[in-house]
Amino acid sequence: MVKINKLFIENSFAFVLLALFIIVPLAVGENADIHNIIIYILIYALVGEGWNLISGFTGQTSFGHAAYFGIGAYTVAVMGNKYDVVPWVGMLAGMLIAAALAFLINYQLFRLKGHYFAIATLAVSEILRTIFSVWPYVGGGDGIKILFRPENKALWLAIDVRNRLPFLYITLALFVAVFVLCKMLENSKMGYYWKAIRESHEVAEAIGINPQNYKVYAMMLSAAIAAVGGGLYVQFFKYIDSYVFSLDVSMIFVLVTVLGGIGNVYGPIIGSIIYYVLDLAMRRLLGGTASGLNLIIFGILIIVVVVYQPKGIMGIFDDIVNRRRLRKLKASQATTNASSNQTGGDSK
């Protein structure tokens, strides 16, 4: 009982968020626009969590996560359309293919450091983009439109366009699973090793970590998570073409995570919420009259947030928490100082 209480208190923020994600879709009624937005928020946050593993925790910036996102999407679409495979199986297959690809490519690429690595990830997704735009098996330049066969209705999760709630909750469940996984990983040996590698390659080696291996583990997990996002995306959007491998798509994952707070499990979801709520607000406010004006204001807002708090929205939260903690610390130090002085106080 005590343990459960502790779980709730320590993660109260997460539970409040979860409650919101459960209640809001019901509260807004049959509002397709809001439901769409929430689904987007969840999908991009989910992929953001994956990106965060390799780029936030492990410190290896990827500008090419669209590659794994796209692989996940294409796998579900191709397997479903051509072989009537259930999306669940398709997503599983997509995860495995993405992880395998991540292993094959990155085992070599991790010899590169910093920006050189980042550009290499971009190169990989651009190469995939070209391949998928000319490969007839996956629809080439026309892309793939997801087929609906009445006799095979159970195939797709998001069947009814007007009522997206079941799909929304499935997406939510998958996001929660990924979130919990990432949080557990952060507090495991893996998470500590990733962060050690991020902070110093040399220290990592000196304390017995094989950086190459742990970076590859991070990338494989990250790719598999991105593939899940891709699988969800294609079921929701019902169409896919090679644009899904573009830098624009990769950058969405980077953006939502960095905006929310890089290296923080809450970062992607907070960033994604802010991103899409602002986006929606802009569109509502300005209507369709001045297309692009919303994006201009949106761009300015991003700049303002970043300039105000370079660590993103979670950085702003941290500031508030830290200020409170500092005050507490000062109060407690005043009392302990007296005793530590007597014992010689070996720390300064």
Partner: peptide, 23 residues
């Protein structure tokens, strides 16, 4: 700030410049 923060700022600025051009 970290490199990615600056990147986010330039990305935002890129959106601004591109969309003003479009407008």
């Amino acid at each position: 700030a970290s490199g990615l923060t600056a990147l986010l700022a330039t990305f935002g600025f890129s959106m601004v410049l591109k969309n003003i051009a479009q407008l």
